[in-house]
Design a protein around this nucleic acid. Structure first.
Ligand SMILES: [Zn+2]
Ligand SMILES: [Zn+2]
Ligand SMILES: [Zn+2]
Ligand SMILES: [Zn+2]
Lengths: 146, 146
DNA sequence: CTTGAAGCTACAGTAGCTAGAGACATTAGA
DNA sequence: TCTAATGTCTCTAGCTACTGTAGCTTCAAG
């Protein structure tokens, strides 16, 4: 059995994050020692490692919740899990496309500025006026990365 | 003079968002009508349009605050504005790189799954075990996109 | 037995909004 | 002119996924 600190180290997750996951019901309530400290089994470590890896791949906690409960039913068909992964892939692709067009515009802005006064700054100018942009980078609904 | 609703329509910004911007001091306090409703000038519209465009390009509200105050001093050199834009570009590039590697992994996961039971699902398998990943997509600090 | 690290709970804060409640203002039509 | 519909007001709470704080208790090493 591991304490929360050891578990965190082993999984690469900070201690408060583990407690947070328990609080929101993503992880089951941990067993407690006589002195009320949380104790974790190896299985709990696997679960947390799964969570961490899915987070690193950008899945939301809600998606991870679903993935966890799917992975608890090994005999079920995996279509639901695949659908979640595909949705995540689509989301990532959407963000990639958006970021790519932002990059184009930012590059243009920065490259076109000659470095004079604010009054002549291309950065300020473009920010004031979208019609100076080359692409339609406009906000087709994004999510958050991290 | 425009009411807040007209202003929002003209700039493409929702009414509560305008009030929020005022509340956090990003926009100056608006004049008020006899009946205590906010009234905006054309200059206020320009300012809000600037904010919206900068948001669409992914700048944080803090960065926008700085850009706005820079743009109020047209005779100053524009180095500071350019630096903000360059930092934003760097940030976007960082996120792009990360998302690109996430995309690789998600694609692999999805492609490798044959669509059987959860027990054999490649999606679940990869999520359980990072060593099945092709790249090192690991979390080098990300931010959020819009 | 003492000390310091690690654990506990509970609450506040982050970014950038969004949504709702309940009251007042304005405007268009009958 | 009255009324109904829409718009606006303030205030509060909620969203994601944590992170940090305060003030305490427990545990392990020396
Ligand atoms: Zn410049
Ligand atoms: Zn633009
Ligand atoms: Zn599958
Ligand atoms: Zn991986």
């Amino acid at each position: 059995m591991l304490t929360i600190g050891k578990l965190g180290q082993a999984a690469g997750v900070k201690v408060p994050t583990i407690r947070y996951y328990e609080q929101i019901g993503l992880l089951p309530e941990a067993e407690r020692s006589a002195g009320n400290q949380r104790l974790y089994s190896r299985k709990a470590l696997d679960r947390l490692t799964f969570v961490r890896h899915a987070r690193e791949l950008g899945f939301t906690l809600d998606a991870i919740r679903d993935l966890l409960s799917l992975s608890d039913n090994p005999d079920q068909p995996c279509a639901a899990a695949d659908a979640i992964a595909k949705a995540q892939l689509a989301e990532i692709e959407k963000r990639l496309a958006r970021l790519a067009s932002l990059k184009v515009e930012l590059n243009r802005m920065v490259a076109q500025c000659a470095g004079g006064r604010i009054a002549d700054c291309r950065v300020i100018e473009v920010l004031s006026n979208h019609s100076l942009c080359a692409t339609d980078h406009r906000h087709p609904q994004a999510g958050n990365d991290h």
